[in-house]
Amino acid sequence: MTIIELKDVSKWYGTFQVLNHCNAKVNAGEVIVICGPSGSGKSTLIKTLNALETIQEGEIIVNGISINKPNTNLPLLRSKVGMVFQSFELFPHLSVIKNLTLAQVKVLGKTKDAAYSFAVHYLDRVGLKDQINKYPGQLSGGQQQRVAIARALCMEPVVMLFDEPTSALDPEMVGEVLDVMAELAQEGMTMLCVTHEMGFAKKVSDRVIFMDQGKIVEDCTNHQFFNDPHLLSSRAQEFLSKINYA
């Protein structure tokens, strides 16, 4: 089953083309890593998938709904697409539990009790059940990002989007976030991750999309990307050769 489909997507900032005729499909249960040099349009691409960024040309279909039609119910669609940001973006004026329950109650219309037990369940899964009444500012970066993942999971999304989830973290905290993501992947969550963590990409992803200058240059299986690099474009080979991964 196709969860996300991009058809010939293009986007410009003024005269600068950030996305250049991008085509891709994401099937249910797939874990896809999007990589590429900075400025290649990775983050922009992932933000078009829940219409945080608009596109000028092409079509994006998420969960069977074309998202750039004017009559699309964007809040409803976004509530089914989880997103995790580079800088966490927890709500600093709300406690951890409020961060997790607010959208469940206000967007999904759940009761406070139902939202609360969901929140506790997912906080437990990311190993932060004991931080329930703290404020985001009292948590470490790694803990904040795990709360952010739990917040997205509380909405029971059909797909999770990760926009460089470990780039703003101290090195010793990267692991705890990647572990949570790897667990999610194992459980069959459909995931798209923009990341520079190629070790994670090699270990966890099913497919790798490589972008350069707004174009999807490579869209291939994990095996092809990491084991047969000589079959890749020279741009992708150059990128891989500069990156250390274990």
Partner: peptide
């Protein structure tokens, strides 16, 4: 920061 709006919009808020 705009990220705060992005985050709440991404959760489906109007």
């Amino acid at each position: 920061p705009k990220g705060q709006s992005d985050a709440s919009m991404a959760l489906g808020m109007t």
